[in-house]
């Protein structure tokens, strides 16, 4: 057996791969579920916080800024561990799935709030004035005039950040979530063969590479033209 054959036999073992393919696939489903939940709830919460911040209520804004800073400062893995291992001591025991979802959604909320807010504040004052001069209220101006322009401006930084945070679903493996990496790791220790890990790696690429390529396209498409 040549070195190459041995390499393939070890890292791309067909028998092992066939055996653990269902596990990896079920891991993919969990990863997708987590990712969708994180993106939807994280972006929505971030947008709501940014809109609340536009109301310019001092104490509320201090609170928003603190929460945002907190979740930008803490490593996501630390938040996950804190929720999963810490909360049970307070009588709440979230599952690993819920811990990972909440943690990453909070992180995405914080980052997206910053980006949405920067977008809103970057819209020139004249846009507000023109709209208010025709009788639109503060809220109507925010929703109809400012937000559409701000969102367009925020799409490139937002996509990049969202991808980076969503990849973090792999961290769920630390708190026993059966997503791709978790499935792959346990398959490796059961089969004593690294092939499942290679499949796991491929699974991540299948899921995320199209998103990254699409993001590249979005970035050029939404470069602001006036």
């Amino acid at each position: 057996m040549s070195t190459w054959d041995r390499f393939v036999e070890t890292f791309f073992n067909a028998k092992v791969m066939v055996k653990y393919l269902p596990d990896i696939l079920s891991g993919m489903v969990v990863t997708i579920e987590l990712a969708v939940l994180i993106v939807l709830s994280g972006l929505l919460a971030g947008l709501v916080l940014a809109l609340l911040r536009a109301l310019a209520i001092r104490p509320l804004n201090w609170l928003i800024i603190f929460v945002v800073d907190l979740f930008r400062s803490l490593p996501p893995l630390v938040i996950i561990v804190l929720i999963y291992f810490g909360l049970p001591a307070a009588g709440v025991s979230p599952s690993g799935f819920v811990s990972t979802w909440l943690s990453l959604a909070f992180v995405l909320m914080a980052f997206s709030e910053e980006i949405f807010w920067a977008g809103i504040t970057s819209i020139p004052k004249g846009q507000w004035e023109a709209s208010r001069s025709t009788g639109l209220s503060f809220g109507q101006t925010l929703i109809n005039v400012v937000l559409p322009q701000a969102l367009r401006l925020t799409i490139p930084p937002l996509t990049n950040r969202t991808i980076a945070i969503t990849k973090g679903t792999a961290l769920g493996t630390v708190v026993a979530v059966t997503e791709i990496l978790g499935q792959a790791s346990s398959a490796v220790s059961n089969s004593y063969n690294p092939s499942p890990l290679m499949m796991g790696a491929a699974a991540y690429l299948v899921l995320f590479l199209p998103v990254v390529v699409a993001a590249r396209w979005v970035e050029t498409k939404f470069a602001w033209k006036r």
Binding site: I163, A164, K167, G168, T169, A170, L171, T173, I180, L181, S185, V188, P194, L197, M198, G200, A201, Y204, L205, F208, L209, V211, V212, V213, R216
Partner: peptide, 17 residues
């Protein structure tokens, strides 16, 4: 693009395990 799509933890585990 490969490394933007690849979770760093997976890369780390791949190297380590």
């Amino acid at each position: 693009d490969f490394f933007r799509a690849f979770p760093p933890l997976v890369l780390l585990v791949l190297l380590f395990a």
